[in-house]
Write a protein that binds this DNA or RNA. Structure first.
Length: 395
DNA sequence: TCTGGGGTCCTAGGACCC
DNA sequence: TCTGGGGTCCTAGGACCC
């Protein structure tokens, strides 16, 4: 196994974009996000500020920090440009999120050189062409490359040589493993596991008692650098959703329903633009003790119609109306899963001049099946052009 | 420290089918 | 009448990630 997997991860992505676009923010502690910290510059992180911390708490740690609002459009645009460089580097790209990807360069040695050389070139290009710092981890497995990029931050290139994986991994704290968070960390701590090395050689039966079979085997394998997962270029989205939270209590049932309707519109518009239909509708709720729960229903057919999804949401809403009207609800979310991409449907039919009713009938059929919003283009081909396709019929 | 908004994956029970 | 193993689908909850 050769070290040929890159994990490329933009550093403090949102904060770096802000510092790039506004020179007055450079080399200064700054935070993106009011409410909670979405990203912080390294100058702010040096004082203990962390992502997902309340902004007010962050300002207590770092009173001189400048706080700016998130500009999602700028981040999406920057991300696109960086991913273009990724795709220019290798055809084998697996995007993980807006700011990170795995890149398999195993087959490129004769064309582009060694993985570390490719990683160095990639970093230089992202810096020169997009103006952002990026850290690259290089290793023989996805997991090790991911841990390496975290260890290499900020603005670094960390290569774990073939055969050196365990020397690299074992001294690190167990929570550096991809998939070990707060809860799992605590469980590991209870049985005396502090480092990845401890986990690697821990008694498996004891581990299973604490974590369950699958989780225990998975983590112990990762700790031993056993990660057979390949860079997967064909990953498809599994769910799509939107949510709103309300810091204070006192949301009425009408407020909540208005928000549900707004979410339905947002989500169905997004689904149509992405050519996705969904069949399972889930209502996610949170109470004033920060306890979350969900209720879902599966429709007979996938849809992106706001009317159909709205009906499903209404059913879920009514089933929980007592809670929603109590004023205890602090968050409402809606998501669609069981996603499919509908084929572009072309309906070709002949009809006699003077019988447009036949077309109306066909459009009605489509409306019944896919919902009103699915019909965004309908054209009557002039004679002799009947076979021209219209690939964006359902965009 | 009083906590956003977007996701993924795993588990487990029950219904239902063969 | 009571019984098996194997499979899929649906629902709910939880941990984790960025």
């Amino acid at each position: 196994m050769t070290a040929s997997i890159l994990h490329a991860d933009l550093d403090s992505f949102y904060a770096s974009v802000e510092q790039r676009d506004d020179p007055s923010l450079r080399d200064r502690p700054m935070i993106v996000g009011r409410g909670i910290v979405l990203a912080a510059s390294y100058e702010a992180k040096a004082t203990g500020v962390r992502t997902a911390m309340g902004t007010s708490a962050a300002l207590r740690l770092c009173p001189e920090a400048i706080v700016v609002d998130a500009r999602m459009r700028a981040y999406v645009e920057a991300s696109k440009r960086v991913f273009e460089i990724f795709h220019d580097t290798s055809p084998l790209i697996e995007g993980v999120s807006i700011d990170e990807a795995f890149i398999d360069v195993g087959g490129l040695r004769n064309i582009s050189g060694s993985a570390p050389k490719i990683g160095a070139t990639l970093r230089r290009r992202v810096r020169d062409e997009v103006g952002l710092p990026i850290t690259v981890g290089v290793a023989s497995t996805k997991h090790c490359a991911k841990v390496a990029s975290q260890a290499g931050k900020p603005d670094g290139l960390l290569v774990v040589p073939e055969g050196g994986e365990l020397d690299f991994l074992w001294p690190l704290p167990a929570n550096k493993l991809w998939g070990v968070g707060k809860k799992t960390s605590e469980k590991l701590g209870r049985i005396g596991i502090a480092t990845i090395g401890d986990l690697a050689i821990a008694d498996t039966d004891r581990l299973i008692e604490e974590l369950g079979t699958a989780h225990a085997h998975h983590l112990q394998a990762l700790a031993n650098n056993q990660d057979p997962r390949r860079v997967d270029t064909g990953r498809r989205r599994k769910s799509i959703g939107s949510q709103r939270s309300f810091p204070s209590r006192g949301m009425t049932g009408n407020d909540a329903w208005a928000i549900v309707l707004e979410l339905v519109e947002r989500i169905t518009a997004s689904m149509r633009s992405k050519n996705l239909m969904g069949r399972t509708v889930t209502l996610n709720l949170r109470d004033n003790n920060f306890h979350s729960f969900s209720r879902s229903t599966t429709m007979a057919q996938a849809s992106w119609s706001s009317a159909e999804i709205g009906r499903a949401a209404k059913k879920l809403f009514h089933e929980n109306s007592e809670f929603l009207r109590s004023g205890a609800c602090t968050k409402v979310g809606l998501s669609l899963s069981n996603l499919t991409s509908p084929h572009n449907v072309q309906l070709a039919m002949d009809f006699e001049p003077g019988r447009p009713a036949a077309v109306d009938a066909a459009v009605d059929q489509i409306r019944d099946r896919f919902g009103n919003e699915s019909i965004s283009a309908a054209r009557i081909m002039p004679e002799g052009h009947e076979h021209h396709s219209h690939p964006n019929w359902f965009q």
